[in-house]
């Protein structure tokens, strides 16, 4: 099973986490909603699989390129 690190695309804050560890996700499902540039910007899953680890929590400030979620699939 390959692990995919999902990195945040933009510097901002974690506004809402839409998944929890262990749940199944499909490609293009929303994992996290970031708040940046006064907008809610969804972070989509690049692959289908299981959420193995959430590296961030709501309210965290994150920089572009930081790993937010690890998907196994």
């Amino acid at each position: 099973m390959a692990l995919t690190e999902v990195t945040v695309e933009i510097t901002g804050s974690i506004w809402k986490i839409e998944v929890s560890e262990g749940v199944q996700v499909e490609e293009d499902d929303t994992l996290i909603i970031m708040e940046s540039m006064k907008m809610e910007i969804p972070l989509l899953s690049p692959v289908s699989g299981t959420v193995k680890e959430l590296k961030v929590k709501e309210g965290d400030s994150v920089s572009e390129g930081e790993v937010a979620v690890i998907i196994e699939g």
């Binding site: 695309e9 933009i10 940046s36 540039m37 907008m39 910007i41 969804p42 989509l44």
Partner: peptide
């Protein structure tokens, strides 16, 4: 594409 960097 507003999904990426808000489209910036």
């Amino acid at each position: 594409d507003p999904y990426i960097y808000g489209g910036s």
